[in-house]
Design a protein around this nucleic acid. Structure first.
Length: 656
DNA sequence: CTGTCGTTTATTTTT
DNA sequence: TAAACGACAG
C-alpha cells in the first residue's frame, strides 16, 4: 500500500477534510471518540508526505503521553524508523516542554542563565511563605495559597508585576508579594510553571528577531485540546502562527474541564472571529461507545446553555442500559464494585478493561479497601504523586542544590535534613542577599563560625563540596546513592517513622525506586542528573498510566480525559460531591461540572455503571446525601435502577 | 535546636 | 480524618 492510501484508509469524509485542509487556519470540533488523535496524526503524516519538512511542524498536546503516541503513530504511518525516524519526526510536546526547549536556548536574553531550575508547586508555596514572613504578612489572614493562585492568574493573563497597579488593599498586597516573588525567582535563576509559557511570550514580544526565527521554523502548527488552552498559551500559539497562518486547532468545547486552571473557553469559541477565513470541521461520529452510552451523555450535556451546537451519533450497537446503583454508604459502594468485578471477570472482561472514576481523590480510599480485601490488583492515577513524597523531595533537593547553588528553596530543605543542629537562624545567616551562590556563602560562614554550630557547619560544608565533586564526575544513580549513604538517610527515615515500621519501609522502598529511575539517566554520565531533574519537573501523572497490566484503573474524572475503557464505573454520584458543593453556586462552574460528567460518561465503550450512596462519610463524619442532579438528567428509558436493599436507621449506627 | 503535644483547620479538579 | 501548625518544655 502506498503512503497516500495508508493515510486516508478508514477515515470518514469529515476526517479527510480535516486532514487535507493544509493551508490556512482550521478548527476541528471533535466529539468524544470521534477519532481526534487519528485526525491529528494522519494530518501530520499527510503534511510530511506532501513534502513539508518535519522540522517545520509543531504539534502541541496536553500530556507527554499524547505527544509520545502521536510521534509513534506518525512514524508508523510513514514507515520510518531508526535514524530516518529522528529526521522525520516533528516537534511534538506539551506547551510546557516546548517552551522549556525554547527557553533553554534563548533565556539569556531575558536575564536568566541557561541552567535555570523549574520550581514546583511546593517550592512556590515555600517561597511565598518566606516572602510573606519578610513582609510581615499574617499568613493566617492572607493565606499563601490564595496569594499564589492570584499570582498565577496574573501570570496567565500575562500581567507582569511592573504592569500591575491595583488600588484595593488586598490586590495591592498581592502585587507587592508578586513583585518580590518574581525578583526572587530571577535571583535564584529559577522559573515556575507559568513562567515557562509567560517568559516565552515575553521573549517573542521583546525580541522580534527571535520570534521571526521560530515563526520561520514552525510553519505548520497543530494544537490539541484547544478548549483547555489558557490566555498565555493562546497568545503563544497565535503569535507563532501570525506569519504563516497555518494553524490547526482541534478540541471540543463540551469537554472543557479546566476552567479552574485558567483554561479559557473563549479561545475555541472565538476561533471563527479570530480567523474569519478559517475552515471549521465538525467530527460528530463516535466510534467508541454504544448508542445507549452516547444517548445518556447527550441527555446530560443538553442541560448546558453555552455550547457549540452539534449532534453526536454512532453506528455502534445499542448495547446494555446504564446501570444505576444505589448503595447504603461508601463501604457498601466498594463492596458492590468488588462484586461487579467478580461477575465481569467471569464474562469476557479483564481487569485492565475496567476503570473506576470519581470526583475527588479522597473517594479512592473506600474503594481501595474493598479491592484489597477481595484481592483485585489496581493502579491509581494521581493522588499523592510519587515525586511529591517527602522522602523523594528530600533527595531531589540535594541534587537540585548541587545543580543550582542559588536555589534557596532546595538549600533550606537540605541544610537540616536530617537534623544536624543547623536551624532557621543559622540558615538565615547564610542566605544573605538573594542570588548569591549559597555553597560559597556556606563555606565562608563555616570558616568563621564559632561555638556549637561550628563543627556542624564545617561538616555540612565538606559534605556539600564532596557532593559537588561527585555531581561533576559521577552518574546520577551513583551520586544519589552516595548522598543517601553519607547523610544516613534510611536511618533517619526509620527514626522519623518511630513505631510505624511500615511507613519507614514504604519510604525506603520509594527512595530505592528513585534510584531505579536515576539509573535510566546513567548513560548520560554526569549530565544525567540535570536531565533527570528536568524530566521530573515536567512529568505529569497521566504519563504514568499503564495500559497493559492486569489491573483495574482508579482515577479522577479529570484524569480520565482522552482515555477509554470497555467498562466504566462512575462512583459517588451525589449532590455536593458531584457536582461539587463549591461549584453549585456559580452557573459557569456548574456547567463545567456537567461537562466533566459528559467526559466521564463518554469514557465507556460498552458498559457504564453509575453509583451513589445514601450516606457518606465526609471529613470524618457521616451524613445523608441526595443523588446527583446529573442522575436525574439521565433518561429513564436508558437506565436500569438497582435500589439498595436496606433502609432505615440501622446502617447509620453500624457505620459510625 | 528538637521534639512533642494539643489545637486547628481544611478539605476539587492540576499543567 | 488527618495533616499541618504553633506553643512549649527539654
Amino acid at each position: 500500500m502506498n503512503i497516500m492510501d495508508k493515510i486516508f484508509v478508514g477515515l470518514n469524509e469529515k476526517q479527510v477534510e480535516a486532514v487535507k485542509a493544509i493551508e490556512g487556519p482550521v478548527l476541528v470540533i471533535s466529539g468524544p471518540g470521534s477519532g481526534k488523535t487519528r485526525c491529528l496524526t494522519h494530518r501530520v503524516a499527510y503534511l510530511i508526505s506532501q513534502g513539508v519538512p518535519a522540522e517545520n511542524i509543531l504539534a502541541v498536546t496536553f500530556t507527554n503521553k499524547a505527544a509520545g503516541e502521536i510521534k509513534e503513530r506518525v512514524a508508523k504511518l510513514l514507515g520510518t524508523r531508526g535514524k530516518d525516524k529522528a529526521a522525520r519526526t516533528p516537534l511534538v510536546g506539551t506547551f510546557h516542554s516546548i517552551c522549556l526547549k525554547i527557553l533553554r536556548q534563548e533565556i539569556e536574553r531575558l536575564g536568566y542563565s541557561r541552567g535555570f531550575t523549574i520550581l514546583d508547586a511546593d517550592d512556590q508555596q515555600a517561597l511565598v511563605k518566606k516572602i510573606s514572613a519578610e513582609m510581615e504578612i499574617d499568613t493566617k489572614r492572607f493565606d499563601t495559597r490564595g496569594i499564589l493562585s492570584k499570582i498565577s492568574k496574573l501570570k496567565t493573563e500575562l500581567t507582569w508585576p511592573e504592569q500591575y497597579h491595583p488600588t484595593d488593599f488586598y490586590p495591592k498586597l498581592v502585587g507587592r508579594v508578586y513583585a518580590a516573588y518574581q525578583k526572587m525567582l530571577q535571583a535564584m535563576n529559577a522559573v515556575d510553571f507559568d513562567d515557562l509559557i509567560g517568559l516565552t511570550v515575553k521573549l517573542f514580544r521583546e525580541h522580534p528577531e527571535v520570534l521571526k526565527k521560530y515563526q520561520q521554523r514552525f510553519q505548520y502548527i497543530l494544537v490539541d485540546e484547544y478548549q483547555d488552552t489558557s490566555h498565555n498559551q493562546y497568545q503563544l500559539v497565535t503569535t507563532l502562527a501570525r506569519e504563516h497562518q497555518n494553524l490547526f486547532c482541534i478540541g471540543d468545547d463540551a469537554q472543557s474541564i479546566y476552567m479552574f486552571r485558567e483554561a479559557d473557553i473563549r479561545n475555541i469559541l472565538n476561533f471563527r472571529h479570530d480567523y474569519p477565513e478559517s475552515r471549521i470541521v465538525l467530527l460528530e461520529q463516535n466510534y467508541r461507545s454504544t448508542k445507549n452510552i452516547i444517548a445518556a451523555a447527550q441527555a446530560v450535556i443538553a442541560n448546558n446553555k453555552n455550547q457549540i451546537p452539534k449532534e453526536l451519533w454512532t453506528a455502534n450497537d445499542t448495547g446494555d442500559k446504564v446501570v444505576l446503583k444505589e448503595t447504603v454508604n461508601e463501604r457498601d459502594e466498594g463492596l458492590w464494585i468488588a462484586n461487579m468485578l467478580e461477575s465481569l471477570l467471569r464474562q469476557r472482561y479483564q481487569l485492565h478493561d475496567i476503570a473506576i472514576l470519581y470526583r475527588t481523590h479522597a473517594q479512592s480510599r473506600a474503594i481501595e479497601e474493598s479491592l484489597i480485601a477481595s484481592g483485585f490488583p489496581y493502579q491509581i492515577i494521581g493522588g499523592i504523586k510519587f515525586y511529591d513524597r517527602k522522602e523523594i523531595k528530600d533527595i531531589l533537593a540535594y541534587a537540585r542544590f548541587l545543580v543550582n547553588p542559588k536555589d534557596v528553596v532546595a538549600f533550606e530543605r537540605i541544610i537540616n535534613t536530617p537534623p544536624r543542629g543547623l536551624g532557621a537562624s543559622t540558615s538565615d545567616k547564610i542566605l544573605g542577599r538573594a542570588g548569591t551562590d549559597l555553597s560559597i556563602s556556606l563555606a565562608e560562614h563555616a570558616a568563621k563560625a564559632q561555638g556549637r554550630q561550628a563543627s556542624a557547619l564545617k561538616e555540612f560544608t565538606s559534605l556539600v563540596s564532596r557532593f559537588q565533586e561527585l555531581l561533576k564526575t559521577k552518574s546520577p544513580s551513583t551520586l544519589f546513592r552516595t548522598i543517601m549513604k553519607e547523610i544516613s538517610y534510611e536511618a533517619y527515615l526509620e527514626r522519623q517513622a518511630g513505631a510505624e515500621r511500615e511507613q519507614a519501609e514504604t519510604r525506603i522502598e520509594n527512595v530505592q525506586e528513585l534510584l531505579t529511575v536515576a539509573k535510566r539517566f546513567d548513560h548520560l554520565g554526569p549530565a544525567g542528573t540535570a536531565a533527570l531533574l528536568e524530566e521530573i519537573a515536567l512529568l505529569q501523572d497521566m504519563d504514568r498510566v499503564k495500559t497493559g497490566d492486569k489491573k483495574v484503573t482508579l482515577m479522577t474524572m479529570h484524569a480520565s480525559k482522552g482515555l477509554e475503557f470497555p467498562i466504566v464505573f462512575i462512583v459517588g454520584m451525589e449532590e455536593g460531591l458531584f457536582p461539587h458543593s463549591r461549584s453549585v453556586l456559580s452557573p459557569h462552574e456548574l456547567e463545567e461540572e456537567r461537562r466533566l460528567c459528559y467526559v466521564a460518561i463518554t469514557r465507556a465503550k460498552e458498559r457504564l455503571y453509575i453509583s451513589f450512596a445514601k450516606f457518606r462519610r465526609i471529613f470524618g463524619s457521616a451524613s445523608a446525601t441526595m443523588p446527583s442532579r446529573f442522575v436525574g438528567e439521565l433518561p429513564q428509558n436508558l437506565i436500569d435502577i438497582q435500589l439498595s436493599e436496606f433502609g432505615g436507621e440501622s446502617e447509620i449506627i453500624d457505620y459510625a
